[in-house]
Design a protein around this nucleic acid. Structure first.
Length: 505
RNA sequence: GGCUCCGUAGCUCAAUGGCAGAGCAGUUGCCUCUUAAGCAAUUGGUUGAGGGUUCGAAUCCCCCCGGAGUCACCA
């Protein structure tokens, strides 16, 4: 049984009284002729010619101010807020008292009336008739907006608890309009990405989320089980292998936007499920993908925010192409003083790093050491958009080596604001080389390493039919949204971020 | 998973070993142009759960639950 708070008990009592009077507290249908913004716009236009504007509005009560024989209230709908004016002149004393007594902040109402301007000049609906659309049993977290002299709005007692905001996103959205705006912008960003790729002739596809074998990234998967097929299934950790199988099938430009699942830690930039964008482009290489990437992100920023100059924390970031190109070897040399090309195995690189007074992790392959150097010393310095390119082969099993340089692959990662945004490479399309890479991965890592890539026979079979040379790209869409919206936690751009199970007593 | 910090009324926060409080929200009354409306009165608490120390615990200790930060893993 639900335990009700004292505030909820009072509202339940009101519900009972309303029902006892035969009033429907959750009517099946609602009507409206205008949104709040439409009503105000139409009124302001009609005002000049002294024309009357009647309107039926719907919305949620956000504030009430009762003063004897008249009452003011603000309701909020999808477009914004609008003031209601209830007066005995139009409604009679009983109806005004009924509103004051039975209607609470959080209730959904419908009100019909005529638009007018109050003495203070605010466009307002003078109410002739109103009724309940949905009674709120639980009070919304109280939040009151104060408009200061300079027009800025201060919210008092706003819902700020990170936990309640994330767990009860519905309440967060209901009382914090800027949160609604974040998610509208997120939708616009994803729409812009689609528009860009569609216009470039990419085909949007959907590949399996539930897979018999996972691959395409170094991550631990979620495991589940199909009862009828009597086999374990994995939630995908990337789209990569399936999308490249489509290139084998002569689909030349494909992309997918969807959810990836990685069974790993949670942090300000990691959620166990996250939105990924991947595209694969036949006959392109990583240099072409670089150009497309900076164009795509610039297009998206321009489309959604109307500018290429954004703020992230204390940084001013300029997304205008072309972005800086920085060879990884040179970047690492700059920040650590160690030339990775001078150290072709893990022992030598470790010694080189120690000679510079650094303290690298022990017992890891050369690729992981380079990854560590990157994350520790280089990544935090990459504030302006930068493509870091040419990666060590042994952490990139699906990327193609540079011609005449077997230790290095044609791969880049895009960075901005000090975090990784995307990852791309010239895709390996040689089935024999690919097979030996898979085998090599299995040998380089301990057999029980949970990140070990399973060997995907079907992927190799596909590649043996012939895969066109191509450039591939992957980007965490949540991180792009964070970057563009100056949000410092992935939880701020996910409607329902992963949280531990809540105990209901 | 390790470490650090946090959890007090519906919301935002006080009280640091000595009577659990404030603002808003709520309730009652007054008020025909308010807008964090105002004025007056008033309700509301298992201080996250459990155990311990103490004459006395929101405060100190232990354990559990949840969250935040950070490290590890990763995108």
């Amino acid at each position: 049984m639900t335990e009700y708070s004292s505030l909820e008990k009072i509202r339940l009592q009101k519900l009972e009284e309303l029902r006892a009077e035969g009033i429907e507290t959750y009517p099946t249908r609602a009507e409206r002729t205008h949104t709040s913004a439409q009503a105000i716009a139409e009124f302001e236009a009609a005002e000049k010619e002294s024309r009357e504007v009647g309107a039926t509005l719907t919305g949620r009560i956000r504030a009430t101010r009762a003063m004897g024989k008249l009452s003011f209230a603000h309701i909020e709908d999808g477009d914004g807020k609008i003031q209601l004016f209830l007066r005995v002149n139009e409604l009679g004393q009983a109806q005004v008292e009924f509103f004051n007594k039975m209607f609470d902040i959080g209730d959904f109402v419908q009100a019909r009336g005529v638009m007018m301007r109050t003495k203070s000049g605010e466009p307002t609906l003078l109410v002739h008739e109103f009724h309940m659309l949905a009674k709120a049993v639980s009070p919304l977290p109280a939040a009151k907006d104060e408009t200061l002299e300079d027009g800025s709005i201060v919210r008092h007692a706003a819902l700020e608890s990170a936990e309640i905001r994330a767990r009860q996103r519905y309440a967060d959205l209901a009382v914090n309009p800027e949160v609604r705006e974040t998610f509208r912008k997120r939708a616009a960003i994803i729409k812009a990405l689609r528009e860009f790729l569609d216009d470039k002739g990419f085909l949007e596809v959907e590949t399996p989320i539930l897979q018999p074998l996972y691959g395409g990234a170094a991550a631990r998967p979620f495991v589940t089980h199909h009862n009828e097929l009597e086999q374990d299934m994995y939630l995908r950790i990337s789209f990569e292998l399936y999308l490249k199988k489509l290139l084998v099938g002569n689909l030349e430009k494909v992309y997918e936007i969807g959810r990836d699942f990685r069974n790993e830690g949670v942090s300000f930039k990691h959620n166990p499920e996250f939105t990924q964008l991947e595209f694969y482009w036949a006959y392109a290489d990583y240099l072409k993908v670089m150009e497309l990437t900076e164009q795509m992100i610039a297009f998206t920023a321009q489309k959604v925010f109307g500018t290429l100059k954004i703020k992230y924390k204390e940084h001013d970031i300029d997304l205008t192409p072309p972005w800086t190109r920085l060879e990884m070897r040179a970047g690492l040399l700059n920040v650590t003083g160690v030339d990775i090309y001078a150290h072709t195995d893990a022992d030598s690189l470790t010694a080189g790093l120690r000679a510079k007074g650094l303290n690298p992790p022990v017992g890891v392959p050369r690729g992981k050491l380079i990854d560590w150097m990157l994350g520790e010393y280089l990544e935090p310095t990459l504030i302006q958009p930068t493509f870091l390119y040419d990666y060590p082969r042994d952490i990139s099993p699906l990327a193609k080596s540079r011609p005449n340089d077997p230790l290095t692959v044609e791969r880049f990662e895009g960075y901005a604001a000090g975090f990784e945004l995307c990852n791309a490479f010239t895709e390996l399309n040689d089935p024999l080389d690919q097979e030996s890479r898979f085998v090599e991965m299995g040998r380089d890592y301990k057999a029980d390493d949970e990140e070990r890539h399973p060997l995907d026979e079907d992927y190799l079979r596909a590649m043996r039919y012939g895969m066109p040379p191509n450039g591939g790209f992957g980007m965490g869409v949540d991180r792009l949204v964070m970057l563009l919206m100056d949000k410092h936690s992935i939880r701020e751009v996910l409607l329902f971020p992963a949280l531990r199970k809540e105990e209901f007593s």
